[in-house]
Simulated assay, not measured.
Amino acid sequence: MSNVNGWNATGQTFYPLAPLPASALQSVRRRRMAAICLDLILVSIMSVGTFIVLGLLTLGIAWLILPPLFPFIAFFYNGLTISGWRMATPGMKAMDLEMRLVDGSPTPFINAAVHAVLFYLSWMFPPIFLISLFADDKRCLHDMLAGVIVLRRV
C-alpha cells in the first residue's frame, strides 16, 4: 500500500513508472556532471551580462548597491527551465536528461527552485554528493529532499 508522498508501508520509494527501464538511469551521473558545467557557464554569462547592463543603465551607481546576482539568476533559471515543457535546463537538455517528480509527473516551479537551492547548498559539504553512489536510482541528497529524479529522456 502506498500514499501520496511516494512511500509504501515498508518505507521504500516507488515509481509509478516502475520498473524504470535500465536505459532511464544509464550514465546519468556522468551526464549530470556535464550538464552542471554547461549550466554554470550559462548562469555565469547571464549574471555578468545582467550586472553590466544594470550598471550601464544606472551610470555605474548600481554596481555599488547590487547584491550578487548569481544566486537570484540561478534560482529562476532552474525553476523556470525545469518546470517548463522541456523539463530540463539547457545543459540537461544537451545531455539528454530530464527531471521529474518521484511519481513521474512534471516538476512544478517550487520543487525545481528548491532543488536548485539545495544543490548550491550541497557545495558547502561536497561529501554529500557521494550519496548518489549508494542510491539505486542514482539520486543525490538534494534530489531526495526535493522529491525529484533525473532520468534520461526515453
Rank of each mutant, 00 (worst) to 15 (best):
M92D: 10
M46C: 10
P71E: 02
R86M: 07
T89W: 08
L97S: 04
P68N: 06
I82Q: 07
D39S: 07
N5F: 11
L69Q: 07
N78W: 14
S27I: 00
M92A: 11
F70K: 10
S83H: 01
L141V: 15
Y77H: 12
N5S: 13
Q12F: 11
S132K: 04
I82Y: 00
H142F: 12
I36T: 13
M95F: 00
Q12A: 15
V102A: 13
P126I: 06
M33R: 11
E98K: 14
M92C: 11
V48E: 08
Y77W: 02
I110T: 06
L118N: 15
S23I: 04
A112N: 11
T58G: 10
N111M: 09
I128T: 10
R32P: 10
W85N: 08
M92W: 03
D143T: 06
L42D: 01
R139I: 05
R152A: 04
I36K: 03
L42M: 12
V117A: 02
A94D: 14
T107Q: 12
V28H: 07
R152L: 06
T107K: 11
L101R: 15
C37L: 12
A18L: 05
C37G: 15
I65A: 01
R31Y: 00
M87T: 13
D136W: 12
F125H: 02
R152E: 05
V48M: 06
Q12T: 13
V148I: 15
D143R: 02
A35M: 05
L130S: 01
S83P: 09
L57I: 15
L145N: 07
I45E: 07
R139E: 12
I82F: 00
V53L: 14
L56H: 05
V48N: 07
P68D: 05
L141K: 12
F134H: 06
A18N: 08
R32G: 13
M144C: 11
Q26Y: 08
P19N: 01
A9M: 12
M144H: 11
L97I: 01
L40C: 15
A113L: 09
F109S: 05
R31A: 04
G6T: 04
P106M: 01
V114R: 11
M46Q: 07
P68E: 02
P19K: 05
T81M: 14
N8S: 09
V117R: 00
T107D: 12
D143I: 10
V114D: 11
